[in-house]
Nucleic acid binder design. Sequence first.
DNA 1: CGGCTGCTTGAACTTGTTCAACAGCGGTGG
DNA 2: CCACCGCTGTTGAACAAGTTCAAGCAGCCG
Lengths: 247, 247
Amino acid sequence: MDNPLARKLSHFTRLSASDQAALDFLARQRVRQVHARHDLIREGDRPEHVNLILSGWACRYKTLEDGRRQIIAILLPGDFCDLNIFILRTMDHSMAAITPVTYAEVSREVLEEVTLKQPRITQALWWDTLVTAAIQREWSVSLGQRTALERVGHILCELFVRLRMVGLTSGNSCEFPITQVDLADATGLSAVHLNRTLQELRADELIVLRDRLLTIPDLPALQVLSLFNPNYLHLDAEGQQYGANEP
Amino acid sequence: MDNPLARKLSHFTRLSASDQAALDFLARQRVRQVHARHDLIREGDRPEHVNLILSGWACRYKTLEDGRRQIIAILLPGDFCDLNIFILRTMDHSMAAITPVTYAEVSREVLEEVTLKQPRITQALWWDTLVTAAIQREWSVSLGQRTALERVGHILCELFVRLRMVGLTSGNSCEFPITQVDLADATGLSAVHLNRTLQELRADELIVLRDRLLTIPDLPALQVLSLFNPNYLHLDAEGQQYGANEP
DNA sequence: CGGCTGCTTGAACTTGTTCAACAGCGGTGG
DNA sequence: CCACCGCTGTTGAACAAGTTCAAGCAGCCG
């Protein structure tokens, strides 16, 4: 299974063969590529499709008039942008590729067709939507209450766990292709302080981060330091009751 | 029209008489009351209903182990908690009443019945869900990038505009029944600093806030100071194309 | 009256920012 | 091939924003 969406949703529900096929069908919609640091869509644009990230990292962000930028969310392979986005006339934020990104452009019609035929997928996409909202809330907690050290530790924990969900970790390591400037904009810190905070985590041997490779030798320890409680990711197969009966 | 939900949704789409009746039906579901500062639901609980705020202010919040608390969202009359909440096994955050609150407990079945029969309402509820997500994102921008002064100004603008949508302002004033401690927890500031920031806004004659009554003499000026751009509230009747044809 | 909650003030302190400079690296073009 | 540029990460030092601690005041309710 190389479909990150299917991989992610299977943490919620058991997917039947036809569910799998439908998700593969979604991932085979018009596939597009975008270079690193290019926008997928800009604030003010009218959204036309639902994008599904197939590979690479992207982000949502907003900029203030004077140039301050906040990264609002990080999108990993298997992540969808808002499913019912066409209801809104214009985008209220922008999206950009952090690394080179491939994504599938799913039309409203195709999405409706799939969700009509596969109620389990509809359920699972709802779950995904709710988890996305929960992540957004947790970021508010980080930005509002956590110290720099906790904040950085927290986002590392979150990204690691989310990458593990889609099979993009090996052991306690994962690719980590985001620059310090972007991480700073995501955590609401200055680049200088983010740099020093990473060094503190390194000095405490909680992380190894070099050449775009992150290793977390002792994830539980990092979780404790960061006050990271993964419950908001709702990982514990909560939707098994909706699962397929077929093997 | 005293149904705040109907009032809010009519900013998105034109509602037919039967849509109106359906929304009134929702607001007449089991109506409950809760005292100020009591929880509606706690982190870890299993959500059983969709709650619709009829009067009073409530909030979502999370607390860290050491007592730090972040208010994640403020719910005003007409606000729904997540529509598909039953998909998740447990709450990942708590909700509490800020003032005395009355709310309607809508069962999953009733909600499904209404949305099946009234597709325009389904559309409008989707719009509402997307706006709620946009508000959450904007809070991330505030918490991550805005200064204390901008942050406080911004939340005052937002709450004023949202209250106006549901008819709870008169002229440039509105009831504003939240304590400074709660506002501090919502903006990620200490209560002391929030207090001083409010005083700064008062000294600049951008707000009058006394006895739970807020007046914003010059809203555009406060918006400029706060870098408040209301586009994320998607107020401009974006869903007129879905509107009722009946008068 | 007493106790509680919410608001206010002063002063010391801490955390994180800003500014400025530099090193390493990869790519590009002369 | 080398010089140069731009991007990323790193460092030091001065500075600013916001926090903490501690105290006091006003209004309200029993």
